Simulated scan of single mutants.
Amino acid sequence: MPGQYTSVAFTDSLALQELSASIGSVGDAYDNAPAESIIGLFKTEAVNRHCAFAGLSEVEYAVMEWVDWYNNARLHSRLDYLTPAEYESAYYAQRQPRRPALV
């Protein structure tokens, strides 16, 4: 059956959490664009910098090293030139802890 299928239960679950589904209309590229952008960035920064990988273990190490850098150490202009880890720490440091509901 061509096209996408999204269950009503899935849609209802997203609505309860006040989230939007990342599902576009059939045949568009809106869902794939961010993934393709990250894959292109990865290829440029991790794969093309190495002349050749000697084996699978070197590829796996390069992937883990790049993902760690991307998630924790890169400076990001949209985050006021903080690393994602620094920005996340600052965000949670200023949030008030949730108190349990009194019965």
Rank of each mutant, 00 (worst) to 15 (best):
N32E: 15
V103D: 15
E45C: 00
D68Q: 12
Q4P: 01
Q4F: 06
D80R: 11
V59G: 06
R74Y: 04
D68L: 04
Y30H: 12
S37C: 13
R78K: 14
N48S: 07
L102F: 15
T44Q: 12
A85Q: 14
S22W: 04
P2D: 08
V63W: 10
P2W: 10
T6A: 08
A9L: 05
R98G: 03
A90G: 12
Y87M: 00
A33C: 09
N48I: 04
T6S: 04
D80I: 01
E58T: 05
A33K: 12
E45H: 02
N32L: 15
Y5C: 02
Y30F: 12
E58M: 05
D68S: 14
A85F: 05
L102A: 15
D68G: 06
S25K: 05
S57I: 03
N72E: 09
N71K: 00
A90L: 11
Y81H: 12
A15W: 04
L56F: 00
Y92H: 11
L82R: 11
N32Y: 10
L82M: 14
R49P: 00
L102I: 14
L41E: 10
E65H: 09
V103F: 15
A9H: 13
M64D: 13
A46G: 00
Y91W: 04
C51D: 11
S77Y: 00
A54Y: 02
T6W: 02
D68W: 06
V8E: 10
F42P: 02
Y70A: 03
T6D: 02
V59D: 00
P84I: 01
Y61I: 02
E60Q: 12
H76L: 09
L14D: 01
E58A: 11
K43W: 00
T6V: 15
F53G: 06
D12R: 15
R74N: 10
C51S: 14
Y87A: 09
A54Q: 11
